[in-house]
Simulated scan of single mutants.
Amino acid sequence: MSRPQTPPRQFFPFGNPFRMISPKGSNLPSKLAAILNAFERSLAERLRKLHPSSKDDVLSLSWMKLAMELLCETHSDIKTLIKELDLPVPDWNEKWIDVYLDISVKLLDVCNAISSELSHLNQSNLMLRCVTHNLDSAESKRLARARASLGQWKQNISSSNSRVKNCCAILDSLGESLDLPKVKNSAKGKVLMLALYGVKVQTVFMCSVFASAFLGSPKLFDLKIADTYSWGQTFSSLQNDVNNEIRSTYSHGKFTPLKELEAIDQCVANLHKIIPENPEVEEVKPLENAVSELRGKAEKLSEDLHLLTNEVDSFFQIVLAGRDALLSSLRGS
Protein backbone atom coordinates (compact mmCIF):
# COMPACT_ATOMS: atom_id res chain seq x y z
CA MET A 1 0.00 0.00 0.00
CA SER A 2 1.54 3.29 -0.93
CA ARG A 3 0.67 6.95 -0.81
CA PRO A 4 1.04 8.64 -4.18
CA GLN A 5 4.28 10.63 -4.20
CA THR A 6 3.76 11.98 -7.69
CA PRO A 7 0.62 12.81 -9.67
CA PRO A 8 -1.06 9.47 -10.38
CA ARG A 9 -0.25 8.03 -13.78
CA GLN A 10 -3.37 7.75 -15.83
CA PHE A 11 -4.12 4.72 -17.92
CA PHE A 12 -3.58 5.31 -21.64
CA PRO A 13 -1.49 8.53 -21.75
CA PHE A 14 -2.10 8.71 -25.50
CA GLY A 15 -5.85 8.68 -25.21
CA ASN A 16 -8.49 6.12 -24.41
CA PRO A 17 -8.48 3.40 -27.08
CA PHE A 18 -11.87 2.06 -25.97
CA ARG A 19 -14.77 2.74 -28.22
CA MET A 20 -18.32 1.54 -28.30
CA ILE A 21 -17.87 -2.02 -29.47
CA SER A 22 -20.96 -3.73 -30.80
CA PRO A 23 -21.36 -7.48 -31.05
CA LYS A 24 -21.16 -8.82 -34.56
CA GLY A 25 -22.33 -12.08 -35.99
CA SER A 26 -25.95 -11.77 -34.88
CA ASN A 27 -26.92 -14.17 -37.68
CA LEU A 28 -25.33 -17.11 -35.96
CA PRO A 29 -26.72 -20.64 -36.33
CA SER A 30 -29.21 -21.35 -33.56
CA LYS A 31 -26.97 -23.84 -31.73
CA LEU A 32 -24.04 -21.40 -31.63
CA ALA A 33 -26.32 -18.52 -30.67
CA ALA A 34 -27.63 -20.60 -27.75
CA ILE A 35 -24.07 -21.34 -26.56
CA LEU A 36 -23.13 -17.64 -26.69
CA ASN A 37 -26.39 -16.50 -25.05
CA ALA A 38 -25.94 -18.95 -22.17
CA PHE A 39 -22.41 -17.69 -21.60
CA GLU A 40 -23.48 -14.03 -21.65
CA ARG A 41 -26.44 -14.66 -19.33
CA SER A 42 -24.09 -16.20 -16.77
CA LEU A 43 -21.70 -13.25 -17.15
CA ALA A 44 -24.53 -10.75 -16.60
CA GLU A 45 -25.72 -12.62 -13.50
CA ARG A 46 -22.23 -12.57 -11.99
CA LEU A 47 -21.94 -8.84 -12.60
CA ARG A 48 -25.30 -8.34 -10.86
CA LYS A 49 -24.08 -10.32 -7.85
CA LEU A 50 -21.10 -7.98 -7.57
CA HIS A 51 -23.20 -4.82 -7.54
CA PRO A 52 -22.62 -3.36 -4.07
CA SER A 53 -25.73 -3.00 -1.93
CA SER A 54 -24.10 -0.04 -0.17
CA LYS A 55 -20.91 1.98 -0.38
CA ASP A 56 -19.56 0.02 2.59
CA ASP A 57 -19.27 -3.01 0.32
CA VAL A 58 -16.62 -1.23 -1.78
CA LEU A 59 -13.96 -2.29 -1.12
CA SER A 60 -14.38 -4.87 1.59
CA LEU A 61 -12.25 -8.00 1.50
CA SER A 62 -15.40 -10.14 1.43
CA TRP A 63 -16.52 -8.25 -1.71
CA MET A 64 -13.07 -8.72 -3.26
CA LYS A 65 -13.21 -12.44 -2.46
CA LEU A 66 -16.58 -12.67 -4.19
CA ALA A 67 -15.20 -10.74 -7.18
CA MET A 68 -12.30 -13.17 -7.55
CA GLU A 69 -14.60 -16.17 -7.05
CA LEU A 70 -16.91 -14.96 -9.84
CA LEU A 71 -13.93 -14.23 -12.08
CA CYS A 72 -12.83 -17.84 -11.61
CA GLU A 73 -16.29 -18.99 -12.68
CA THR A 74 -16.18 -16.87 -15.84
CA HIS A 75 -12.76 -18.23 -16.82
CA SER A 76 -14.01 -21.76 -16.18
CA ASP A 77 -16.99 -20.98 -18.41
CA ILE A 78 -14.77 -19.97 -21.32
CA LYS A 79 -13.09 -23.39 -21.16
CA THR A 80 -16.51 -25.03 -21.23
CA LEU A 81 -17.61 -22.85 -24.15
CA ILE A 82 -14.53 -23.84 -26.18
CA LYS A 83 -15.42 -27.51 -25.65
CA GLU A 84 -19.06 -26.90 -26.63
CA LEU A 85 -17.98 -25.15 -29.81
CA ASP A 86 -16.10 -28.30 -30.77
CA LEU A 87 -13.50 -26.10 -32.39
CA PRO A 88 -10.28 -28.14 -32.43
CA VAL A 89 -7.15 -26.13 -31.75
CA PRO A 90 -5.68 -26.95 -35.20
CA ASP A 91 -8.66 -25.07 -36.66
CA TRP A 92 -7.98 -21.95 -34.59
CA ASN A 93 -6.80 -18.90 -36.42
CA GLU A 94 -3.20 -18.08 -35.47
CA LYS A 95 -4.35 -14.68 -34.16
CA TRP A 96 -6.86 -16.34 -31.81
CA ILE A 97 -4.09 -18.49 -30.35
CA ASP A 98 -1.82 -15.48 -29.92
CA VAL A 99 -4.62 -13.57 -28.16
CA TYR A 100 -5.39 -16.43 -25.77
CA LEU A 101 -1.74 -17.01 -24.89
CA ASP A 102 -1.02 -13.30 -24.50
CA ILE A 103 -3.99 -12.79 -22.18
CA SER A 104 -3.11 -15.82 -20.08
CA VAL A 105 0.56 -14.97 -19.48
CA LYS A 106 -0.35 -11.41 -18.51
CA LEU A 107 -3.03 -12.63 -16.11
CA LEU A 108 -0.52 -14.95 -14.45
CA ASP A 109 1.71 -11.92 -13.85
CA VAL A 110 -1.25 -9.97 -12.44
CA CYS A 111 -2.07 -12.85 -10.08
CA ASN A 112 1.52 -12.91 -8.84
CA ALA A 113 1.40 -9.16 -8.17
CA ILE A 114 -1.87 -9.43 -6.23
CA SER A 115 -0.56 -12.39 -4.23
CA SER A 116 2.57 -10.41 -3.43
CA GLU A 117 0.55 -7.54 -1.97
CA LEU A 118 -1.71 -9.88 0.00
CA SER A 119 1.41 -11.42 1.51
CA HIS A 120 2.66 -7.93 2.37
CA LEU A 121 -0.63 -7.10 4.10
CA ASN A 122 -0.51 -10.34 6.03
CA GLN A 123 3.04 -9.66 7.22
CA SER A 124 2.00 -6.19 8.35
CA ASN A 125 -0.91 -7.73 10.19
CA LEU A 126 1.41 -10.09 12.04
CA MET A 127 3.23 -7.01 13.30
CA LEU A 128 -0.01 -5.78 14.86
CA ARG A 129 -0.56 -9.08 16.60
CA CYS A 130 2.89 -8.73 18.19
CA VAL A 131 1.91 -5.21 19.24
CA THR A 132 -1.24 -6.41 21.00
CA HIS A 133 0.85 -9.05 22.79
CA ASN A 134 3.19 -6.34 24.12
CA LEU A 135 0.22 -4.24 25.18
CA ASP A 136 -1.05 -7.02 27.43
CA SER A 137 1.59 -5.85 29.88
CA ALA A 138 1.76 -2.48 31.62
CA GLU A 139 5.57 -2.66 31.69
CA SER A 140 6.89 0.67 30.45
CA LYS A 141 9.53 -0.80 28.09
CA ARG A 142 6.98 -3.03 26.38
CA LEU A 143 4.56 -0.12 26.06
CA ALA A 144 7.31 1.99 24.48
CA ARG A 145 8.12 -0.81 22.01
CA ALA A 146 4.44 -1.20 21.18
CA ARG A 147 4.05 2.51 20.50
CA ALA A 148 7.09 2.49 18.19
CA SER A 149 5.75 -0.59 16.40
CA LEU A 150 2.41 1.13 15.75
CA GLY A 151 4.28 3.88 13.90
CA GLN A 152 6.31 1.30 11.98
CA TRP A 153 3.12 -0.49 11.00
CA LYS A 154 1.77 2.64 9.31
CA GLN A 155 5.04 3.08 7.41
CA ASN A 156 5.08 -0.58 6.41
CA ILE A 157 1.48 -0.67 5.25
CA SER A 158 2.04 2.48 3.18
CA SER A 159 5.22 1.24 1.52
CA SER A 160 5.36 0.88 -2.22
CA ASN A 161 5.04 -2.50 -3.93
CA SER A 162 6.89 -2.47 -7.25
CA ARG A 163 5.13 -5.61 -8.45
CA VAL A 164 1.73 -3.96 -8.12
CA LYS A 165 3.06 -0.89 -9.94
CA ASN A 166 4.26 -3.12 -12.77
CA CYS A 167 0.83 -4.73 -12.76
CA CYS A 168 -0.62 -1.40 -13.96
CA ALA A 169 1.48 -1.56 -17.13
CA ILE A 170 0.17 -5.07 -17.76
CA LEU A 171 -3.40 -3.89 -17.31
CA ASP A 172 -2.73 -1.02 -19.72
CA SER A 173 -1.61 -3.56 -22.29
CA LEU A 174 -4.65 -5.77 -21.72
CA GLY A 175 -6.94 -2.78 -22.02
CA GLU A 176 -5.36 -1.54 -25.22
CA SER A 177 -6.00 -4.95 -26.82
CA LEU A 178 -9.57 -5.20 -25.58
CA ASP A 179 -10.90 -5.14 -29.14
CA LEU A 180 -10.20 -8.70 -30.28
CA PRO A 181 -9.32 -9.82 -33.84
CA LYS A 182 -12.09 -9.67 -36.40
CA VAL A 183 -13.36 -13.04 -37.56
CA LYS A 184 -14.31 -13.89 -41.13
CA ASN A 185 -15.95 -17.01 -42.44
CA SER A 186 -16.12 -18.76 -39.07
CA ALA A 187 -19.29 -18.63 -36.99
CA LYS A 188 -17.60 -20.59 -34.21
CA GLY A 189 -14.70 -18.16 -34.28
CA LYS A 190 -17.09 -15.23 -33.86
CA VAL A 191 -18.66 -16.87 -30.82
CA LEU A 192 -15.20 -17.50 -29.33
CA MET A 193 -14.10 -13.88 -29.83
CA LEU A 194 -17.35 -12.43 -28.45
CA ALA A 195 -17.08 -14.62 -25.35
CA LEU A 196 -13.40 -13.73 -24.88
CA TYR A 197 -14.34 -10.06 -25.10
CA GLY A 198 -16.70 -10.45 -22.14
CA VAL A 199 -14.02 -12.32 -20.20
CA LYS A 200 -11.46 -9.59 -20.86
CA VAL A 201 -13.83 -6.81 -19.84
CA GLN A 202 -14.66 -8.44 -16.50
CA THR A 203 -11.02 -9.37 -15.88
CA VAL A 204 -9.49 -5.99 -16.74
CA PHE A 205 -12.06 -4.12 -14.68
CA MET A 206 -11.74 -6.31 -11.58
CA CYS A 207 -7.93 -6.36 -11.69
CA SER A 208 -7.87 -2.56 -12.01
CA VAL A 209 -10.05 -2.33 -8.90
CA PHE A 210 -7.62 -4.59 -7.02
CA ALA A 211 -4.67 -2.48 -8.18
CA SER A 212 -6.42 0.68 -6.99
CA ALA A 213 -7.03 -0.86 -3.59
CA PHE A 214 -3.38 -1.85 -3.18
CA LEU A 215 -1.58 1.14 -4.70
CA GLY A 216 -3.01 3.92 -2.61
CA SER A 217 -4.26 5.83 -5.64
CA PRO A 218 -7.05 5.27 -8.18
CA LYS A 219 -5.87 3.31 -11.22
CA LEU A 220 -9.25 2.68 -12.79
CA PHE A 221 -10.69 2.02 -16.22
CA ASP A 222 -13.87 3.58 -17.58
CA LEU A 223 -14.79 1.02 -20.20
CA LYS A 224 -17.46 1.91 -22.74
CA ILE A 225 -19.55 -1.13 -23.55
CA ALA A 226 -22.32 -1.11 -26.13
CA ASP A 227 -25.81 -1.65 -24.73
CA THR A 228 -26.34 -4.19 -27.50
CA TYR A 229 -24.39 -6.62 -25.37
CA SER A 230 -26.86 -8.34 -23.08
CA TRP A 231 -24.53 -7.75 -20.13
CA GLY A 232 -23.48 -4.21 -21.15
CA GLN A 233 -25.83 -2.15 -18.98
CA THR A 234 -25.24 -4.36 -15.93
CA PHE A 235 -21.50 -3.95 -16.31
CA SER A 236 -21.67 -0.19 -16.86
CA SER A 237 -23.77 0.29 -13.73
CA LEU A 238 -21.37 -1.83 -11.65
CA GLN A 239 -18.31 -0.03 -13.02
CA ASN A 240 -19.81 3.40 -12.39
CA ASP A 241 -20.75 2.71 -8.75
CA VAL A 242 -17.49 0.98 -7.83
CA ASN A 243 -15.21 3.51 -9.54
CA ASN A 244 -17.07 6.48 -8.08
CA GLU A 245 -16.78 5.11 -4.54
CA ILE A 246 -13.06 4.42 -4.90
CA ARG A 247 -12.37 7.88 -6.33
CA SER A 248 -14.43 9.46 -3.57
CA THR A 249 -12.38 7.61 -0.95
CA TYR A 250 -9.09 8.91 -2.29
CA SER A 251 -10.44 12.43 -2.84
CA HIS A 252 -11.10 12.60 0.92
CA GLY A 253 -7.44 11.91 1.67
CA LYS A 254 -7.79 8.32 2.89
CA PHE A 255 -4.77 6.13 2.28
CA THR A 256 -6.82 3.06 1.38
CA PRO A 257 -10.33 2.19 0.21
CA LEU A 258 -10.07 -1.22 1.91
CA LYS A 259 -12.71 -1.08 4.64
CA GLU A 260 -11.05 -3.54 7.02
CA LEU A 261 -7.67 -1.84 6.72
CA GLU A 262 -9.20 1.59 7.25
CA ALA A 263 -10.88 0.33 10.44
CA ILE A 264 -7.56 -1.02 11.74
CA ASP A 265 -5.83 2.25 10.89
CA GLN A 266 -8.35 4.07 13.10
CA CYS A 267 -7.65 1.63 15.97
CA VAL A 268 -3.89 2.10 15.54
CA ALA A 269 -4.22 5.89 15.56
CA ASN A 270 -6.33 5.73 18.72
CA LEU A 271 -3.82 3.54 20.54
CA HIS A 272 -0.94 5.70 19.41
CA LYS A 273 -2.62 8.67 21.07
CA ILE A 274 -3.38 6.81 24.28
CA ILE A 275 0.15 5.48 24.86
CA PRO A 276 2.44 8.35 25.97
CA GLU A 277 5.82 8.84 24.33
CA ASN A 278 7.50 8.19 27.68
CA PRO A 279 5.34 5.70 29.61
CA GLU A 280 7.93 5.56 32.42
CA VAL A 281 7.06 9.05 33.64
CA GLU A 282 3.66 9.75 32.14
CA GLU A 283 0.41 8.22 33.26
CA VAL A 284 -0.91 5.53 30.93
CA LYS A 285 -4.64 5.56 30.30
CA PRO A 286 -6.54 2.24 30.41
CA LEU A 287 -5.76 0.30 27.23
CA GLU A 288 -7.84 -2.85 27.61
CA ASN A 289 -10.77 -1.86 25.37
CA ALA A 290 -8.61 -0.33 22.66
CA VAL A 291 -6.25 -3.33 22.60
CA SER A 292 -9.17 -5.77 22.50
CA GLU A 293 -10.69 -3.93 19.54
CA LEU A 294 -7.42 -3.91 17.62
CA ARG A 295 -6.80 -7.60 18.35
CA GLY A 296 -10.27 -8.56 17.10
CA LYS A 297 -9.93 -6.55 13.89
CA ALA A 298 -6.42 -7.91 13.23
CA GLU A 299 -7.63 -11.50 13.65
CA LYS A 300 -10.56 -10.87 11.31
CA LEU A 301 -8.26 -9.27 8.74
CA SER A 302 -6.00 -12.33 8.89
CA GLU A 303 -8.95 -14.64 8.17
CA ASP A 304 -10.21 -12.48 5.29
CA LEU A 305 -6.75 -12.21 3.73
CA HIS A 306 -6.38 -15.98 3.90
CA LEU A 307 -9.71 -16.53 2.10
CA LEU A 308 -8.93 -13.95 -0.57
CA THR A 309 -5.46 -15.42 -1.11
CA ASN A 310 -7.04 -18.84 -1.70
CA GLU A 311 -9.34 -17.37 -4.37
CA VAL A 312 -6.43 -15.64 -6.11
CA ASP A 313 -4.52 -18.94 -6.08
CA SER A 314 -7.55 -20.68 -7.60
CA PHE A 315 -7.72 -18.06 -10.35
CA PHE A 316 -4.01 -18.55 -11.07
CA GLN A 317 -4.50 -22.31 -11.38
CA ILE A 318 -7.52 -21.93 -13.70
CA VAL A 319 -5.62 -19.59 -16.03
CA LEU A 320 -2.53 -21.82 -15.93
CA ALA A 321 -4.56 -24.97 -16.65
CA GLY A 322 -6.24 -23.35 -19.66
CA ARG A 323 -2.90 -22.20 -21.03
CA ASP A 324 -1.30 -25.61 -20.51
CA ALA A 325 -4.23 -27.34 -22.21
CA LEU A 326 -3.90 -25.10 -25.28
CA LEU A 327 -0.13 -25.59 -25.51
CA SER A 328 -0.55 -29.34 -25.13
CA SER A 329 -3.10 -29.39 -27.96
CA LEU A 330 -0.78 -27.39 -30.16
CA ARG A 331 2.09 -29.80 -29.54
CA GLY A 332 -0.20 -32.75 -30.22
CA SER A 333 -1.36 -31.30 -33.52
Rank of each mutant, 00 (worst) to 15 (best):
T234F: 05
R129V: 00
S76F: 00
R295M: 05
S237K: 15
S159R: 14
I264E: 14
E245Q: 14
A187I: 02
F18N: 10
L327K: 15
T74E: 11
V99C: 00
Y100V: 13
P181F: 04
L326H: 06
E73A: 05
N37V: 01
D109T: 07
S292T: 02
F214I: 09
D241W: 03
E69R: 15
L320I: 05
L28V: 03
Q123W: 07
Q155Y: 03
N166Q: 09
S53T: 13
L327H: 11
E303M: 08
I35K: 12
V183M: 05
Y250M: 14
I318R: 13
D227T: 04
G175T: 06
L174G: 06
I157A: 09
K285S: 03
L128Q: 10
L126S: 07
K165I: 04
A67E: 12
R9Q: 15
S124M: 10
E260K: 09
M127D: 13
M127V: 10
V131R: 09
A290G: 00
L320S: 13
A325C: 02
F205A: 04
L287N: 07
I246R: 07
P8D: 09
L135K: 13
F316E: 12
R46E: 12
P181H: 11
R41T: 08
L81F: 02
G216D: 07
T6C: 08
R142C: 04
E293M: 06
Q202C: 05
S237W: 04
N289E: 14
S115F: 04
A44W: 03
N240Y: 06
Y229I: 02
K79A: 14
M1N: 09
L70W: 04
E84S: 06
A195V: 01
V319Y: 03
L326A: 04
E293P: 00
A148F: 11
W96T: 07
R3D: 08
F214D: 12
L71R: 08
K224H: 09
Q155R: 11
K79L: 13
H75D: 06
T249Q: 11
E293Y: 02
G25R: 10
N156P: 01
N37M: 06
E282D: 09
L121C: 08
R48T: 05
V319I: 11
Y100I: 13
S329Y: 03
S217L: 14
E282R: 07
A169Y: 08
E139R: 10
R145T: 05
